[in-house]
């Protein structure tokens, strides 16, 4: 992922950056942005303030301390010793993480909107009035939860299988049995938001 070699004729191959160097630059850039721009713009009090004639610690001091520690960590990484086997991110890491995030985001969208959409199409009342009624209250959680479980299993296996679908169904039933059936005051997603 970092600094792929250039193999075109007539050009010297680029030296691949050490993963710690990349991490150090990211940390230093973030610390600089935090300390120089974000913190002054997004806090109303400085490092300290004077209240009724007394000095008190302002809201900016603690995040500034965090930023300073981050900068020190970045400098230590930049100028510190380098391990030859330092872990680094590769394209597969990013691809896998992107797939997981996409699956969970799709699952979240389904959780939030399948119930209201279904009531709009097939019921006389608004979802808010039906969110404690079977089957409406389970529609969002069941569809979104199924996508998350079956989707993640399918990514790992490289294909969609009946066992992945079964895992999704079992997970939904298990969680409904765990949280919804025994406890009246616990709400499954998205019934606390709508």
């Amino acid at each position: 992922m970092y600094g792929a070699d250039s193999r075109r004729p007539g050009r010297r191959p680029m030296r691949s950056l050490h993963p710690d160097t990349v991490l150090a630059v990211i940390l230093l850039a973030f610390a600089a942005a935090l300390l120089l721009f974000w913190l002054p713009a997004d806090t109303d009090t400085g490092l300290y303030e004077i209240k009724r004639g007394k000095f008190t610690i302002g809201d900016a001091l603690a995040p500034a301390f965090a930023g300073a520690v981050m900068a020190v960590a970045g400098l230590l990484l930049l100028f510190g010793p380098r391990a030859h086997d330092a872990p680094k991110l590769d394209a597969d890491h990013v691809r896998f993480l992107s797939a997981m995030i996409a699956i969970v985001l799709v699952g979240m969208v389904l959780m939030r909107w399948v119930g209201p959409a279904a009531t709009m199409l097939f019921a006389d009342d608004d979802y808010r009035l039906l969110r404690d009624t079977v089957p409406w209250k389970y529609l969002g959680f069941a569809s979104g939860g199924f996508v998350i479980v079956a989707g993640a299993s399918s990514v790992v296996e490289g294909r969609f299988s009946r066992r992945a679908a079964l895992a999704g169904l079992v997970a939904i039933l298990l969680i409904i049995a765990l949280y919804d059936l025994p406890f009246d005051d616990l709400l499954l997603p998205p019934n606390g938001d709508v």
Binding site: D20, L23, A24, L27, A31, L34, W38, L39, D42, T43, D44, T45, G58, D59, A60, A62, P63, F65, A66, G67, V69, M70, V72, A73, G74, L76, L77, G80
Partner: peptide, 26 residues
């Protein structure tokens, strides 16, 4: 160094939106 970076990140995130002033910082 990575441990320090992790601790700094933890401190940074816990200070988001908190504080004593009316304006929620960061």
């Amino acid at each position: 160094a990575k441990g320090l970076a992790a601790a700094a990140l933890g401190l940074f995130f816990v200070y988001v939106g908190t504080g004593e002033d009316f304006h929620p910082r960061l």
